[in-house]
Design a protein around this nucleic acid. Structure first.
Lengths: 111, 111
DNA sequence: ACAATACGTAGGATATTTCCTACCTGTCAA
DNA sequence: TTGACAGGTAGGAAATATCCTACGTATTGT
């Protein structure tokens, strides 16, 4: 399963990709716009090849895309999997609101 | 760093906890309400002690809480870290809306 | 043409995760 | 009291993750 597959990324891929703080930092950097590998690697106390590997994990999870431009590779943020994460989160937000409502009701009953 | 600490869970703990599909299934089961360890373990093709370890990871991330009741332990969902995850997601949703807006504007320009 | 640059891949060392079985403590019920 | 049950912990095997250096390939500039 490499980044060149057209198959959609699984939730597993996305959650696993987000588990690394390095990869979350990479996503945050890409919020500022497209970046080359060297530009990204400059932010880390880590070898460039290791950053390349993290980028591959992010690519496999469809969280970033790459565009070849001469000898550079321009990486861009692809927010769609994060929107699916928001959908995953939705039932838990509902749960949260129910709990808040119950707490408020209990407080109103005994003032 | 055990679950008995009062220190708040880090984003790292939360993302790492969510990286396992078993632990995400545990959270989903707890959406239905409080469950004992045995009730939870019954849903998995895995030994009960292994489920216990997954529960510890979720506890350390403050994603679940436990309440002792006789010889049972009742586990409950604690949605607060997931709400922080939603906050983490926020800038990416803004990014997404910007991108959608740009696409829409481009389409209007060239109909 | 040739050196330098950008970046990926290979192979490997080490750390971490994930599962197991064995075992322990605390609680309940007969 | 004693046996059964709930569930955590210990120790270890196997798989995976994370980093490195060395190297290969494609592109650019001189």
């Amino acid at each position: 399963m490499s980044a060149s597959d057209q198959a959609p990324a699984t939730a597993d891929d996305v959650f696993a990709a987000l588990a690394s703080p390095v990869r979350r930092d990479l996503l945050r950097l890409l919020l500022g716009g497209t970046r080359t590998v060297n530009e990204l690697a400059a932010h880390f106390d880590m070898s460039r090849p290791s950053v390349s590997e993290h980028l591959r994990v992010l690519r496999d999870a469809r969280l970033v895309s790459e565009r070849k431009a001469g000898r550079e590779r321009h990486y861009s943020l692809e927010p769609r999997p994060l929107l699916e994460l928001r959908d995953w989160l939705n039932p838990y937000e509902k749960f949260w609101r129910q709990r808040m409502r119950a707490l408020r009701d209990a407080l109103e009953e005994e003032p």
